[in-house]
Computed example of a mutant assay.
Amino acid sequence: MLHEVALPLIPGIGGGNARLLVSYCGSAKDVFSFPKDRLKKIPGVGEILASRIASYQKEVLRQAEVILERAAREEVKLLFYTSPEYPSRLRNLPDSPLLLYYKGTADLNASKVISVVGTRKSTEYGRVVTEQLVQGLVKHQALVVSGLAYGIDILAHRAALKAGLPTVGVMATGIEAVYPAVHKPYAEKMLLQGGLLTEFPFETKPDAPRFPARNRIIAGLADCTIVIESTQKGGSLISADIAHSYDREVMAVPGPITSETSQGCNHLIKSLKAVPFTQLKDLEELLNWDKALASSSISAAQEEFDVTQFTEEERRVLRALKEAGPTHIDVLSRYTQLSMNQLSTVLLTLEFTGKVKSLPGKQFALL
């Protein structure tokens, strides 16, 4: 784990070029032992980055040793992107973190995950809607994700704690530095009923540019990002835009046109970047939660698709669609255990052969 922790500490190394390096070299450890003249020939690396890897090697390995010791002492999990515990919804995104620091009890790969975001200047309307939304999620046992900030974020965390739902706070600091500090009591409760997650090493302090970076994790972790209240230039709009760019579902709560804290939500709906959220049924229908999805592991005795006609991946998709009916692509990916790239290829093949059809809202069904 030493080299996996050290790699993102090298200046200029991010999720994209780090994955490229690991792919070409074979592992994070091999990146550090790869000859410089071969490193610089890797597409997208070049002379400057190859030199940094060589010159910073000893320094970042020492830092990584300190991080590993502290993580073990404070029971913080270090999740490299190849780890089975790394959030699968994040793994294939182009700008996903290479390494995550996580402490808590929640399953980051829960079958249903909803991100709830909104303005720091929330109103009574926002509080009521947030609590009603979270209470509605209880029957689905969904994981609630937000950013521990003032306003809608902390209202969502508090509502989840009260309702007995797991809730994860995504931080723009080191995992030991809860920001704002006044929310530390809630963060401590979340460690027992959810968790705290960050991509930043220990002792990283709050800094404005880190908050938009944090928002991409909030958006990427979830099946749907719901904006409860937002001003015209609210930071939660960044999360909504990122979720939209990831081709994830976005919902927004409409509000009075005279309300400053509803301007951002109304704009998202007007610009077709978000579906209106007015009741839990809206979310259930959007994500196909209103139809129970049977387990994808069906015994051979129940097999109804010709093994000579379809590949194993195609049979998995066909079985899931047969049992569930029209299904959202994200839900289908999790239940078939296929990556989005694999699933997209299989669905395209099945569409060409006339077995599957695509529906609005990124859903698919058997013909």
Rank of each mutant, 00 (worst) to 15 (best):
R214T: 12
P206T: 15
E188S: 06
Y186H: 12
G195Y: 00
F200A: 07
P212A: 07
P212I: 03
G194T: 08
G194K: 06
L196A: 10
H183P: 03
P209S: 04
E203F: 08
E203S: 10
F202C: 06
L192E: 15
T198N: 03
E188W: 04
P212D: 09
A208E: 15
P212H: 04
V182A: 12
P185C: 00
K189T: 06
A213S: 09
V182P: 01
Y186I: 11
K189N: 08
M190K: 10
A187P: 01
E203Y: 11
E199L: 03
E199W: 00
T198E: 02
Q193D: 05
P209E: 03
N215A: 02
H183D: 03
T204G: 06
G195M: 00
E188T: 03
R214P: 13
P212K: 02
L196K: 10
A181E: 11
F202H: 09
P185T: 02
H183S: 04
L192I: 15
M190L: 04
E188L: 09
E203A: 12
T204F: 10
E203W: 06
P212R: 07
A181K: 11
E188H: 02
P212Q: 12
A181R: 09
G194C: 11
V182F: 05
Y186W: 12
R210T: 08
A208D: 12
L192M: 15
N215L: 03
L196G: 09
E199I: 02
L197M: 12
V182I: 03
L196C: 12
L196S: 05
L192T: 15
K184Y: 08
G194W: 07
D207Y: 15
K189A: 04
L192N: 15
F202R: 11
L197S: 10
H183W: 01
E203P: 00
A187D: 00
P185K: 06
P212W: 03
V182M: 04
P209V: 02
H183E: 02
Y186V: 11
L192V: 15
P206E: 13
F202N: 08
L196R: 12
H183N: 06
A181N: 09
F211S: 10
H183M: 01
F211T: 08
L197F: 05
A208V: 15
M190G: 02
L192D: 15
L196M: 10
P185V: 00
G194I: 05
F200R: 08
L191H: 08
T204W: 10
K184P: 01
E188F: 01
Q193W: 12
D207A: 14
K189C: 07
E188A: 01
N215H: 03
F211I: 04
H183I: 01
L196P: 12
Y186T: 07
V182T: 04
L191S: 10
D207K: 14
P212Y: 05
K189H: 10
F202A: 09
P209F: 09
G194P: 14
N215S: 05
F200L: 14
E199R: 05
T204L: 01
F211V: 04
E188R: 08
A187E: 00
N215E: 06
E203T: 07
F202I: 01
V182D: 01
F200V: 02
F200C: 06
